[in-house]
Amino acid sequence: MDLAKASPAEVRSLIRAGELDKPTSGMCAPYAQANMAVLPKELAFDFLLFTQRNKVPCPVLDVTEAGSPVPKLVAPKADLRHDIPRYRIYRHGELTDEVTDAAPFWRDDLVAFLLGCSFSFEGPMIEAGLEIRHITDNHNVPMYKTNIECVPAGVFHGPMVVSMRPMKPADAIRAVQITTRMPFVHGAPIHIGDPEAIGISDIDKPDFGERSDIKPGEVPVFWACGVTPQAVAMAVKPEFMITHAPGYMFITDVLNSQLSIM
């Protein structure tokens, strides 16, 4: 099966059957992918407020009913306990498990948030003739914690996480034009150039994902990233939290074109 051309339902079926365990970049190219953060109901309002105050790293696509694993707005036949290739389980801010099925950890008081993902704008960039290095080299996108603090809300606070794609300067300008039209999946880059200006001391050592080669004449281009809630979890140390593993996203039934501003 050509995963780039497969339907979201087909890919989710492979994931649920345990037949697909890899980063989802490039899969179901026309469709939006989503980050996931799952928290106890008692923390859900604070987190919703956090997303509203930090819409660039945390653009909300859907929020489930308490206890329900079904994202009714973006994929009403999906099940968030099974349909993501890898999950991370946090207890008191510490990563305790990375699993391929979250059902054993699901509780009746959990609320799931699905947040827009930068993988969604990679398809339009490829269509425009831009290279996406981590797709070319078949590895996970590099992601970094920054010194950019998110706007606090309730108990939630912490640094913004960014994803990075190296590009020639002219391609970076085109990438800005393309992604500016897609605010529901992070929108335009938040920084281009010197990594140290946003607190990244070693571009070759990402906090999440895998390094990308930056070739002569290229500049690093940084977008806000939906892994930000995981960095926040480490800072806030909630009693319990489930997230996607970085790069292993939930694929929705929503077309990227529906999230674009024309």
Rank of each mutant, 00 (worst) to 15 (best):
70 V>Y: 02
77 K>L: 08
70 V>F: 05
53 R>W: 12
64 T>V: 12
93 G>Q: 01
72 K>V: 13
46 D>L: 05
62 D>H: 02
90 Y>R: 02
50 F>H: 08
67 G>S: 00
53 R>E: 11
64 T>S: 09
57 P>A: 06
58 C>V: 04
63 V>Y: 01
53 R>P: 09
62 D>P: 06
61 L>F: 11
66 A>E: 10
92 H>G: 13
49 L>Y: 11
88 R>A: 03
89 I>Q: 06
83 D>L: 00
49 L>N: 13
78 A>I: 00
46 D>A: 15
63 V>G: 01
60 V>M: 14
90 Y>H: 07
79 D>G: 03
70 V>I: 14
53 R>S: 15
60 V>C: 13
76 P>K: 14
88 R>T: 08
54 N>R: 06
72 K>Q: 10
52 Q>K: 12
48 L>F: 11
77 K>F: 03
59 P>Q: 09
77 K>P: 02
81 R>V: 01
51 T>W: 12
78 A>D: 10
77 K>W: 10
52 Q>C: 14
46 D>W: 07
83 D>T: 04
72 K>N: 06
71 P>L: 01
69 P>W: 03
74 V>Y: 11
47 F>N: 14
58 C>L: 15
88 R>P: 04
52 Q>H: 13
91 R>C: 03
79 D>T: 00
55 K>P: 01
84 I>H: 04
56 V>C: 03
52 Q>L: 15
88 R>M: 08
73 L>K: 13
67 G>C: 01
